Amino acid sequence: MNSLQRIALALVIIGAINWGLIGLFQFDLVASIFGGQDAALSRVIYTLVGISALCCLPLLFASTATEENSGIERNRNLEYTTEIAEETDPSEFNNNNKK
């Protein structure tokens, strides 16, 4: 993820928080900070959030092949050993008991 996508994602998160506040408390944080919904600066923020959402769309459809490959490489050298001691032949116990 490059820096432009990170900035776009941050703006989308800010927009989502603002929509959450509107839905839960009927409080528009962007409008209250920048002078109302009709203020020029508020409209710029709303526009930037919308453009950022469009920039984040490719992230939704990005291939996860690199994530899957990194998981394979990370787990490639695992050794699962449970052997603690040498196994003995059960017939040896029978021979020892007969003596």
Rank of each mutant, 00 (worst) to 15 (best):
M1V: 04
M1C: 08
N2A: 06
N2D: 10
N2E: 08
N2L: 04
S3R: 10
S3I: 04
L4G: 15
R6T: 08
R6S: 11
I7N: 10
L9P: 00
L9Q: 00
A10S: 12
A10R: 13
L11I: 14
L11F: 11
I13M: 07
I14D: 01
I14W: 00
I14K: 01
G15L: 00
A16D: 14
A16F: 06
A16K: 13
I17H: 02
I17C: 00
I17Q: 00
N18T: 04
W19D: 12
W19F: 11
G20Q: 12
I22C: 09
I22T: 00
G23I: 01
L24F: 07
L24C: 10
L24T: 06
F27T: 12
D28P: 08
D28W: 03
L29R: 10
A31W: 12
A31P: 06
A31K: 06
A31F: 09
S32D: 11
F34C: 01
G35Q: 03
G36D: 04
G36H: 08
G36L: 05
D38T: 13
D38M: 15
D38W: 14
D38Q: 11
A40D: 10
L41G: 08
L41T: 05
V44E: 01
I45Q: 09
I45G: 00
Y46G: 03
Y46K: 13
T47L: 10
T47Y: 05
L48C: 06
V49A: 05
V49R: 05
G50V: 05
G50A: 13
G50F: 14
I51Y: 03
S52M: 02
A53E: 00
A53G: 11
C55S: 01
C56F: 03
L57H: 02
L57N: 02
P58H: 00
P58N: 05
L60F: 12
A62F: 11
A62H: 15
A62V: 04
S63V: 07
T64H: 12
T66N: 12
E68C: 00
E68L: 05
E68N: 01
E68R: 10
N69H: 14
N69D: 15
S70Y: 07
S70F: 07
G71R: 14
I72C: 09
R74F: 03
R74Y: 11
N75H: 15
N75T: 12
N75W: 13
R76A: 01
R76G: 01
N77C: 09
N77Q: 04
L78G: 05
L78C: 06
L78Q: 10
E79Q: 12
Y80R: 15
Y80H: 13
Y80G: 05
Y80F: 15
T81Q: 07
T81K: 14
E83V: 10
E83K: 15
A85M: 15
E86G: 11
E87S: 14
E87V: 14
D89W: 08
D89R: 04
P90F: 07
S91F: 05
E92F: 11
E92C: 03
F93N: 14
N94A: 15
N95R: 03
N96R: 03
N96V: 09
N97D: 10
K98P: 01
K99Q: 14
